[in-house]
Design a binder for these strands. Structure first.
Length: 292
DNA sequence: AAGACGAAAGTGGTTGA
DNA sequence: TCAACAACTTTCGTCTT
């Protein structure tokens, strides 16, 4: 058997069969030209991240009383290590702004977890929050509010939009305040704040309603047609998405009630109806006669 | 009985003077 | 800064399936 570290494969030396691949190379990522270099260049630490207040660059001292070889630390040194740990944690979150940042980022992570948002989204939100702090935009606003706003902004930037209502459900502040903070922060940071495309919502809503993929495709198509006729401008994107999905569900005889569609889109039935009426009027769509 | 429909009054935010 | 305005919501009554 031969181990090929460049490919991460274990290969049978007789026949060339790949026995196992995708192995993690645990060696150093540097090339070493002599034994001296090989000893110095070892693995580096964890990647930098925006979601930890010091970007994950500070030292951490483990709570275990083991040294780096896994051996027990003699009792004589325990007290010293203990003091070092105390100082380390004090230094890590030294002043008030650091503490606030720590709190905001943990809050950000809590909310993102509740909404099961991907990690890169959290990084993005953390970056937005840091920018807001740097530009002194938190003054007069609650940390929770700005954190929630940063999350909302990140969702829109990453094209994985969540509604303000969804954010406020997991936030500790009301929807109004989040909206206000968002507009303020996004404006001052001149982020690209284009209105959300209803299409971005469709896949999520469709999934929640257990509708077929072709139904989803139809809904997207309807929204695009509606956009051409100016039926989307000025309207709430969730309402438009909801109506399109409703129409598509009826067309393909997978009908969901207006109430259900309205619920997942977090709008009222009335709004779904109004958008629905506009769609069938201006798009001359034919709804298969009241039959299922 | 549940769903669809529509009218009327209220809310929060934008716009234009 | 204030009033007009459009979109959306809430509530409620009526009609349809």
């Amino acid at each position: 058997m031969i181990y090929d570290p460049n490919r991460g494969e274990v290969i049978c030396s007789q026949c060339g069969l790949v026995i196992s691949d995708g192995l993690v190379d645990r060696g150093p990522e540097w090339r070493a030209f002599d034994s001296d270099q090989r000893e110095k260049r070892t693995r580096v630490g964890a990647p930098m991240t925006y979601t930890i207040h010091d970007r994950g660059l500070s030292t951490m001292i483990d709570w275990k009383n083991k040294d780096s070889f896994g051996k027990e630390i003699p009792a004589k040194l325990r007290a010293q290590i203990y003091r070092l740990r105390r100082w380390q944690s004090r230094i890590r979150v030294s002043d008030a702004t650091e503490r606030n940042l720590t709190f905001a980022l943990s809050e950000l992570d809590r909310m993102a977890s509740h909404l099961s948002l991907p990690k890169n989204l959290r990084e993005c939100a953390a970056r937005v929050y840091r920018d807001a702090v740097k530009s002194h935009l938190i003054r007069g606003r609650s940390i929770e509010g700005v954190a929630a706003a940063a999350l909302y902004a990140a969702c829109r930037q990453m094209k994985i939009p969540r509604t303000l209502t969804e954010i406020s459900d997991v936030a500790r502040v009301g929807r109004k305040e989040i909206g206000r903070s968002y507009r303020f922060v996004a404006g001052r940071l001149n982020m690209s704040l284009q209105p959300t495309n209803p299409v971005e919502y469709i896949s999520r809503f469709v999934a929640e309603l257990n509708l077929s993929p072709r139904c989803q495709r139809k809904a997207v198509e309807i929204v695009q047609e509606a956009a051409k006729k100016g039926l989307t401008s000025g309207r709430g994107p969730t309402g438009v998405a909801a109506a399109a999905i409703y129409v598509a569900s009826v067309m393909y005889k997978e009908r969901r009630t207006q109430r259900d569609v309205a619920r997942v889109a977090q709008v009222t039935e009335v709004t779904v109806r109004n958008r629905f009426k506009e769609l069938i009027a201006k798009l001359n769509l034919e709804i298969p006669a009241k039959r299922r």
